[in-house]
Write a protein that binds this DNA or RNA. Structure first.
Length: 717
DNA sequence: GGACTCTTGGTTTTT
DNA sequence: CCAAGAGTCC
């Protein structure tokens, strides 16, 4: 224990209490910039120094990137390796692979991404003779995803609701699951669901895993969904050494099934819980925190928490106003140059936006301004055609049952196998209940096939068989051979498609890195890892460039200078969250997360007009920011359109500085009408009126002055 | 069987 | 406005 001081010396009392907590459940409510990552890392280090074997520790992070970083930090602390540090999804993939017999899948299962899922769903709808017009695959999948996130199986569903629509959906869900099983494939949600079921139903396996992972740590617990909740619970059932950290104010994945109640109710779920609050913020200036607090404080569903900056006063936060997204983009370039002059490096700056589509205009401006930048979108690479083609070939090598991948490349490059031939093969497979690969291997059985078609298919089968012989080689080598022998390389060369060649090269060097870093590299394992890569994983801290990313991807990062663009109604909060999900609070949290990434300089910008899907619409400043004090409201410089013809400013007339006691989206109680939610606030000269949607279904417009509304909180803490 | 054009639809966030 | 899917023509 002599070593402890060296490890703990730099920590605050609260951090130290969290790090040194030994047995039993522990909840760390950690505000932004409170050193949460540090606490988790140090805790892992502390446990190991106390004699806990590294392989008894499981730390679950939100992204692969975060896992990688934690591993690096531990190495820097001279902690011996061996702890399992990964995301929920990679953990699930790993365990399902290890216990594939119990999970009812082949160990080399494919992991289907969005596009694969859609292809699978199309095939299912086709086999059910349903058209994709009235049954959009995307919507079906969204519903199915929700079911899976809540551990609802087709069987549960069939019994539950007798409604016609649900019945059809249950049938499709069932067929979809069967189809995936036939393909030896799992989608993202399956990974979690299968593991959760395994932990629930197989006590022997659960005990074994409880024994293996005696200390379980979960980061970003506020963004866990029901599946993940059950997995965490199952893993810690016997020892209760469950250590979770999170911040309810930073829960931004509700739309994906994340349930903020998991963290809010942790103390109830685990009565023995020790709780530590980390409220000091070491990251941001008081100015940044004050602005961020103004945004978040309006939320109802939260535990009130002060953000206490440990830093001295800095620059005021700016609010920049432009006429259009183009002048906003120019403004961004000027903002970057200003910060550069003030002594920051490009890598110290980041620009966040609500939707990916906003990056285009920004990119153009950056290129024009000769500013180095990186767009943090790791998935983009894997969505490219040439990469998907390569991966489809590789998947078939390890998982011949994978029809989705097979269909993708059986005629790519074109080898004369058209839709007719393909359909004959698929039909035969389905009618005789023989896997597609067996059908291909025994073409004589398919009577409907002509001689020439048969020869062409045979050639394809020979190709795959040939590639099979390389399967024991290093992964990079298999890829090289695949690229060459499949003919993909030839068509890329013939088409002078240099970008495609470069991308495949990049894919191969990724494999090379994997080969070197991994103890027992296999193609199958590498493919599964690739499937679980996320956008955020692409962020390169070392690069000397300005980072551009969505607000979601910004989670967990920090930058000396942050600019958030498009702070407008309709974007933050997004129109769709206002319409459908009634979850305006999550949008508020999203902006809060973005703002609290800033260490020293924070700027928000908005444009008076923005073109969107071809048409231009008038935009106004986000309701989240309207009227909050402490923001230095400026027009974008050089932005002629922002000035009236006489040169005077008129902005204050457009956006009254009024502050309301109530906000859109807020839950309120009316003395007579009961609980409801504020849908809209209309500023009038006589005072603001609110449109309130009551729980009873009634919708009324009330003058706030007279309505006697009071804040309503359905959740008691 | 394959390449090309036309149409339609879609508003976000992602493991 | 732009991409994916459907339809059309060779």
């Amino acid at each position: 224990m002599i070593l402890d001081e060296e490890l703990l010396g730099s920590l605050t009392d609260a951090q130290r209490r969290a790090v040194t907590h030994i047995d039993g459940p522990m909840l760390v409510i950690a505000g932004p910039g409170s050193g949460k990552t540090r606490v988790i890392t140090h805790r892992v280090a502390y446990l190991i120094r106390r004699g806990v074997k590294p392989y008894h520790i499981l730390a679950i992070t939100f992204t692969n990137k975060a896992a990688q970083e934690m591993r690096n930090r531990l190495t820097n602390l001279h902690i011996p390796p061996g702890a399992t540090i990964c995301t929920f999804h990679s953990l699930a993939a790993r365990l399902l692979r290890e216990f594939s017999d119990k999970a009812g899948v082949g160990p080399d299962f494919s992991i289907y991404d969005d596009a694969d899922q859609k292809a699978a769903m199309r095939a299912v709808l086709k086999s059910c003779e349903l058209d994709t017009q009235s049954n959009p695959p995307g919507r079906m999948l969204e519903k199915i995803s929700n079911f899976k996130n809540n551990l609802v199986t087709p069987d549960n569903l069939a019994g539950e609701e007798p409604e016609f629509i649900t019945k059809i959906l249950a049938g499709i869900y069932r067929r979809y699951q069967e189809y995936l099983a036939e393909n030896n494939a799992l989608d993202f949600d399956d990974l979690l669901m299968k593991l959760a079921f395994l932990l629930r139903d197989d006590a022997q396996l659960r005990d074994r895993l409880n024994n293996r992972y005696q200390y379980v740590l979960v980061d970003e617990y506020q963004d866990t969904n029901h599946c993940q909740y059950q997995i965490a619970r199952g893993l810690a059932l016997n020892h209760s050494n469950l250590f979770v950290t999170g911040d309810p104010d930073q829960s931004i994945y509700g739309w994906r099934g994340a349930d903020i109640h998991n963290i809010l109710a942790f103390e109830k779920d685990y009565p023995e819980t020790g709780v530590v609050r980390l409220e000091q913020n070491f990251r941001s200036t008081p100015e940044v925190l004050e602005a961020a607090d103004q945004v978040i404080r309006v939320n109802i569903k939260r535990k009130v928490k002060d953000l206490l900056s440990t830093r001295t006063s800095g620059a005021p936060c700016e609010l920049l106003h432009y006429s259009s997204e183009y002048s906003e983009a120019d403004g961004m370039v000027r903002w970057i140059k200003q910060l550069l002059e003030a002594g920051l490096n490009y890598r110290d700056m980041a620009v966040f936006y609500r939707v990916n589509s906003m990056s285009r205009v920004l990119e153009e401006a950056l290129r024009l301004g000769h500013i180095p930048y990186q767009i943090v979108r790791g998935l983009e690479f894997y969505h490219r055609r040439e990469i998907k083609d390569m991966l489809a070939y590789l998947r078939i090598l390890v998982n011949p049952a994978d029809q989705v991948s097979l269909v993708r490349i059986i005629n790519r490059p074109t080898r004369g196998i058209g839709t007719t031939t393909l359909n004959r093969l698929l039909d035969h497979s389905q009618n005789t209940h023989v896997t597609i690969w067996q059908v291909l291997s025994d073409l004589e059985q398919v009577g409907s096939l002509g001689v020439s078609a048969r020869a062409k298919v045979k050639k394809f089968v020979d190709l795959i068989n040939k590639l099979h012989t390389y399967l024991e080689k290093p992964v990079a080598e298999i890829m090289r051979k695949t690229y060459e022998l499949s003919g993909l390389e030839a068509i890329h060369k013939a088409e002078c498609h240099e970008e495609a060649q470069a991308n495949v090269k990049e894919l191969i060097s990724g494999a090379q890195r994997y080969d070197q870093e991994t103890e027992h590299p296999t193609l199958s394992d590498h493919l599964q890892q690739i499937s679980l890569i996320s956008d955020a994983d692409a962020y390169d801290m070392e690069a000397g460039s300005v980072s551009l990313m969505t607000l979601h991807a910004a989670k967990g990062l920090e930058f000396p200078g942050v600019l958030i663009v498009g702070v407008e109604d309709g974007l933050i909060p997004h129109t769709r969250s206002l319409m459908e999900r009634q979850d305006v609070e999550e949008e508020r949290r999203l902006l809060f997360v973005g703002m609290t990434r800033a260490k020293d300089r924070l700027a928000l910008s908005y444009a008076g007009s923005r073109s969107f899907q071809g048409s231009t619409s008038v935009q106004i400043l986000s309701q989240f920011v309207r009227g909050i004090p402490g923001l230095d409201h400026k027009r974008g410089y050089y932005d002629d359109l922002d000035y009236d013809s006489d040169g005077t400013e008129s902005m204050d007339d457009d956006y009254p500085d009024e502050t309301y006691d109530f906000a859109v989206g807020q839950l309120v109680r009316h003395p007579q009408l009961g609980p409801g939610r504020i849908m809209e606030i209309i500023p009038l000269r006589k005072g603001p009126k609110a449109i309130v949607q009551f729980q009873s279904g009634l919708r009324r417009t009330l003058a706030l002055k007279y309505a006697n509304l009071e804040p309503y909180d359905p959740y008691d803490y």
